[in-house]
Design a protein around this nucleic acid. Sequence first.
DNA 1: CAGTGGTCTAGACCACTCA
DNA 2: GAGTGGTCTAGACCACTGT
Lengths: 260, 260
Amino acid sequence: MPAKAPTPKAADKPSREIARLLRDAINGGELSPGAKLPSERELAESHGVARNTAREAIRLLTQEGLVQPEHGRGVFVRVRPKLMRFGRRRYSRAMRQSGLSPFRAEVIAQGRTPDTECRSVTRISAPGEVAERLEIPAGTDVVRRENWYYADGEPMQVGTTYSPWAIVEGSPIADTKKMGHGSIYGRFEELGYPIAYVREEISARMPTHEEAAGLSLPDGVPVIDLWHTGMDDRRRPFEVTRFVMRADFTALDYDMPVED
Amino acid sequence: MPAKAPTPKAADKPSREIARLLRDAINGGELSPGAKLPSERELAESHGVARNTAREAIRLLTQEGLVQPEHGRGVFVRVRPKLMRFGRRRYSRAMRQSGLSPFRAEVIAQGRTPDTECRSVTRISAPGEVAERLEIPAGTDVVRRENWYYADGEPMQVGTTYSPWAIVEGSPIADTKKMGHGSIYGRFEELGYPIAYVREEISARMPTHEEAAGLSLPDGVPVIDLWHTGMDDRRRPFEVTRFVMRADFTALDYDMPVED
DNA sequence: CAGTGGTCTAGACCACTCA
DNA sequence: GAGTGGTCTAGACCACTGT
């Protein structure tokens, strides 16, 4: 090849450059959410690079969560869904008495169709992370309930609830059969454990391989990993739930007084 | 080539298979955090595939946040750092009077060295997201302070605080110069705005291109995106801060009474 | 210097979608 | 069947890290 640098200004690697152009087009509004990007082969030809290089550009945008390739159809600008919001109100008495679980209420409020499924109810010995939060010795018997939450048929969250066997024995909570669609906190109240305090420990990370498969997560979508502890009026923990939630559909919203 | 399928059992694509083997080795403990993986060329040869295929396997694990390639050195199993925890106590009177900002206190408690830097203090007209939360008309003048938070020299968070000009005019908060390393809530208290309630809206997502560069984020690390609103004893908002935090170093921990 | 990951090429075939 | 993304090959050169 002749001259070494016809345009020394070129912003580095071709793949980065193509990604930058597409990103700017998306952020600038030339490519709206839902729009289809040029195909990999088109991008490759129009930029005079190999297909793999165009593909690398798409990959960069995918990891940023900006676009989403669909096999056989094309690459599309991702639509930012309205977030489902969960917070302190989730545990209010009003919610508890509405007969609706907090998840169902929120999804319905957004005009979508909720669905929940209890995949398993088992009696196991408490793992360390659970025992600590329940303030019981590790290995104590607990009931484990695995719940899946859907909106319009798509899985949104998985919640795994653990509660001491000594507390829930004989109640609907320990029952494999249906417990109804209401809030579980109504059941705990009947057992003498009215929820009065909650602790929520929140972190975020990329999903594991299994989570990505189970929740049908596209690339570039993290999960919120939330450990929830429910306590009664004397601050005795009676239930912990670990939620794994699609971060692109979920927001947490807490409104609370400041501690002294 | 001769026979079509010598082992039809082969668990799908070679790159996925190599990724699975490495993942299992990591989760099984054969490869501890900090350990070096075989080089791409070694993996390619030992599995009888092209280097790009081995590379694709590494990429899958990188996106899961399991490993971290380092240019010229190798690919390493990621060390899960101890999380910095922030929560409701962050705004307590005790914290306010300790003379330490909540961030500094937490980092020091972990035996690391905190650093904070105020990159800019400007007077601008409030963007919509800010005005809504401050309950002021969009376009009202606010002071914008951009703060960067470091632990052991590495950037951990960026917090952008907005407060009505009418409230902070003439105070250290509106001053470009140093404001000291204490909590900003002490200053607001002096101005007649003792913090009494907070609202925290939390979501998680992949970092933008700019955020990834600014925070030196490795691939596979999401950010926590937090809008914080500070309110006085009459629930009047006087300050909002948007935090963007490295999710692999950060946890939020809220302990609160349930609403009626 | 040798060894590592980062980027790129120019092909190939497969799997999926849609008219 | 035409067009799309998904995976793979067998090379090449570059940039960075260590000794």
